[in-house]
Simulated scan of single mutants.
Amino acid sequence: MKILMVSIFAPHFFNWTEQLKGSGHEIYWLDVFDSNTEVEKIDFAQQITGWRYKWDFPGRYFLKKNHPGFNRLINKVNERSFQKVLEKRIKEIKPDVIHSFVIYLAAAPVLPVLDKFPDIKWILSTWGSDLFYYSKQEGYLEDIRRVLPKVDYLFTDCKRDHQIAIENGFKGTYLGNFPGGGGYDLQSLESYLKEFDERNIILVKGYQGLHGRAIEVLKAFLPLKEKLREFDIVVFGADEEVFHFVRNSEINTWKNFKVLGKVSHREVMKLMGRARIFIGNSLSDGMPNTLLEAIVMEVFPIQSNPGGATQEIITDGLNGLLINNPEEPKHIRNVLEKVLENEIDIEKAIKFNNENLRPGLDRERIKDEVLKKYKLVEEELETSGS
């Protein structure tokens, strides 16, 4: 089966696509915004990059940075149309299916072109806030309701989003919910895992921005200083809003507190392997990848629950704790105190996750299930073509 992937340059996408290596499918990737970079991880795919500019002239980046108005004027002549490039490539490749990743970046722009090729089937993958948040935004909702009725097959990263898709016009075949980047190589991560008694880190995802609410977690910590003394508190992936809060907060004087900016995925997993508790807090998400990583790395998870996505795998008080009001520090403090005052047996919770959730996140296991879904699409194509 010929599959034309349409996606932005994104690690999730590369991890997902890597699952198709050696599958027998013929894979192509059109980079939506054209990073003009070949990706070694998916070197088995034919990568369509370098298409955006007719002339990649010297000094273009200087012009973009220092003279944006003049740069926009030049680009009206110099930039190729994504839709024209897509149409041309479809005619050349003759794909059996097109697989778009994320609605507003890689599906809505594809729709006008696909209308010209009614025989080509369309797969859509949604991630994170793609449906939950944007279905509540009027401008984006219009695109969502134009795209979903035309989609033949759907992957999501949580069950919640399947229902949102149905409510907004999806009538195709649901292929299931899987982690956006596929699963995790559990064996390769074993060396990062510390014994429970060696772990004393409370690890906090540090994003604020549009959806993140790390600052509310830090505010919740402030009245708990004495109870937190036995832990090292590490915030990772902090953005400027979080750094600004820390610089102007008493928490910056705590000897057991550290805040880190952007760190590599490997460093995150190493931190997870030394952490006892992980806290992720946001207003909007799908199934949070850092939550899954915490489970894989045998960390007790405390996670916000936007739209009920997190509760699909976390039962409050059994194998983790849910934050149901991510903007209220007092609520977050009350949740955290359940752990600090030993109301929750976190060793027992981690054991539950190790036995019931962790094995299902193994990369090979998820890959096998994902490939079965692509095989289902292939078989339906063969049946409809016979």
Rank of each mutant, 00 (worst) to 15 (best):
F178E: 01
G22C: 12
E195K: 11
V97I: 11
F101K: 13
T37K: 15
L357S: 06
V235C: 03
I3R: 01
T37H: 15
K373M: 07
G169C: 00
L361W: 03
I323H: 04
Y104V: 12
A165S: 03
I93T: 09
E343F: 07
E26M: 13
Q47E: 11
I98V: 15
K64E: 11
M1D: 03
L291K: 05
G273M: 03
K76D: 05
D185V: 00
F82H: 06
P288F: 00
C158E: 03
I313N: 03
N353K: 10
V370H: 05
Q46D: 14
G182T: 02
K150D: 05
G181K: 01
P301K: 00
D285S: 05
E378T: 09
M297T: 07
V263P: 02
L111P: 13
F221N: 00
K373H: 06
S81F: 04
V268R: 02
E327P: 13
Y104T: 13
V39D: 05
H211L: 09
H211R: 08
Q311A: 09
S284F: 08
D157C: 04
M1Q: 01
F231P: 02
F82M: 05
G139V: 10
T126Y: 01
N342P: 13
K91P: 04
L322V: 08
L63Q: 09
E230W: 02
A107N: 09
H162E: 13
D345E: 06
N342A: 12
I366F: 04
F82A: 06
G360A: 13
N324Y: 04
N342C: 10
A275L: 06
I166R: 10
E92N: 05
E382W: 11
I144F: 00
G59Y: 04
S129A: 14
P95M: 15
L131H: 09
K330A: 15
G50W: 07
T383Q: 14
F352P: 05
V296L: 07
V246R: 00
N289P: 07
L321V: 09
K373P: 01
E250H: 03
I123S: 11
L228E: 01
V151S: 06
R247G: 10
I313T: 01
K88P: 04
I8T: 14
N15T: 08
K121H: 10
W55T: 14
A275F: 11
I48W: 12
E341P: 11
G307W: 14
R333L: 13
K205N: 11
I27M: 08
N252F: 10
E26D: 10
L381P: 15
G209M: 07
R266M: 12
D157V: 01
E190D: 03
Y104K: 10
K330Q: 14
F57M: 05
K91V: 01
Y374G: 03
R213G: 02
A309W: 07
